[in-house]
Amino acid sequence: MKKNRLYLFGGLLLLAFAGFSFTTFTDSMTPYVSYQRARQGDRIVQVAGALEKGSYSYAEAKESLYFTLKDPKTKENLRVRYKGVKPGNFEDAISIVAIGRYDDKTKEFEAQKLLVKCPSKYQGAEVKTYS
C-alpha cells in the first residue's frame, strides 16, 4: 500500500533525525571536569572556580578579558581568557563557571561562555535566624 510506504518513510526520517540529534547531543556535551582534566584540551568542557582577587584585566591588543580561577578544593589555578563582554556581577561572583577549551599553546583556558554565580548575596540563604 502507498500509505504504508509513507509511514515507513516518515518513520525512517524520524529515526534518522533521532540519530542526528543523539550524535549532536553527545558532541556538544560539556562535562564538568577538574582543571587537570581540562588541561588535556581535547574537548569543550566546563570548569568552575572562584575568581582570584585582582587577577582580572582587559587586554586591548588581544580584545580579551583575562582572569584566574581558583579551585576551592585543590587550590589549583587556571588562567582563563574570554573574548566577550564582561558579565555583570563578575567581580562579585562567589563562583564562575567557564565553558570552553584549553589551549596548549597559550597555556590558557579559552572560554566561550561564562556563568556567574552569586547566589548567597541575593538569595539570602544564610539568613535564618528564626528557630
Binding site: F25, D27, T30, P31, V33, Q46
Partner: peptide, 14 residues
C-alpha cells in the same frame, strides 16, 4: 557519570 550540559551549538544545529 559526571553531569554535563549541552551548549547552544546543540540547539542551533538541531
Amino acid at each position: 557519570s559526571n553531569p554535563s550540559q549541552v551548549g547552544p551549538s546543540f540547539y542551533n544545529r538541531v
